[in-house]
Design a protein around this nucleic acid. Structure first.
Lengths: 130, 130
DNA sequence: GCTCTGTTGATAATGATTGTCAAAACCATT
DNA sequence: AATGGTTTTGACAATCATTATCAACAGAGC
């Protein structure tokens, strides 16, 4: 049976409180900063669970870290991510969905999944950088 | 000055001889299997150099490994990758390029880069799996 | 052949993530 | 509220890919 623990709630809450993608390590640090004695391994486990249940999204940063974010919808979608501040916008892309399926089919591929994420500088960070 | 060493040639050759994306570790093993005494660190360095020069593509597998592949063109392009055998097809996607730029612009993002890769099972592996 | 300087490679170091396992917490039941 | 069967936790060790270190080595030009 699945049990409800304050640790899981803490991770879920910390994710919700965060605007963009965050690494497991950073989330653990943030929780500690608020006085929570939660363990690192538990944060990893909770994040993995949330991702499986569809309550969180995960992606790999260009540096190879796994990043997580609270996910507002269980529907398939993609992201527009600020590489500076981590701000994330969820985007839909029916056109890309179709394209991915088409291009896979044309090459004889089946069970097509795809990774489509756009990185850039958000308006705020663009202004600051100027 | 940049020097030509047999090690760099060996890495380039091994990459060319491989059809799909391969990890640095696997490439090192493959080279050792052919009797080459090349060091692991050197393989990493050579791959990083090739990637910078545009002679190789790199991407991150879902498991977090960095994968490399000999790149036939320096132009920007994407990949259709068999998750079973590593077979890779280079694909162009003008539509996706435009879409990425548009969606970034609509949200005030600048300096948009994007990660677009499609994973699936190639025709051969699909047949085997049946 | 000689020297200078970039390159190599064995190994240690790093850093994220996962495995281990006894102790603690959860929840249905008494 | 106490009990008991299980799940979860968390401190720590283990793992894995990758990077740094640094002395020995090998190109390139003289």
């Amino acid at each position: 049976m699945k049990r409800n623990t304050w640790q899981r709630e803490a991770v879920r809450g910390a994710l919700d409180a965060n605007d963009g993608f965050i690494s497991a390590q950073a989330l653990h640090s943030a929780l500690h900063a608020t006085g929570s004695p939660i363990g690192l391994a538990t944060v990893y486990r909770a994040l993995a669970d949330l991702a499986v249940e569809g309550d969180a999204d995960s992606l790999q940063s260009p540096e190879g870290e796994s990043l997580y974010r609270a996910c507002s919808t269980n529907l398939h979608h993609h992201h527009l991510i600020c590489r500076n501040c981590g701000l994330t916008v969820e985007i839909e892309a029916d056109a890309v969905e179709r394209w991915a399926k088409d291009v896979a089919g044309q090459n004889g591929f089946t069970q097509a999944a795809h990774v489509v994420d756009v990185f850039g500088l958000c308006a705020t960070c663009t202004a600051k950088a100027a």
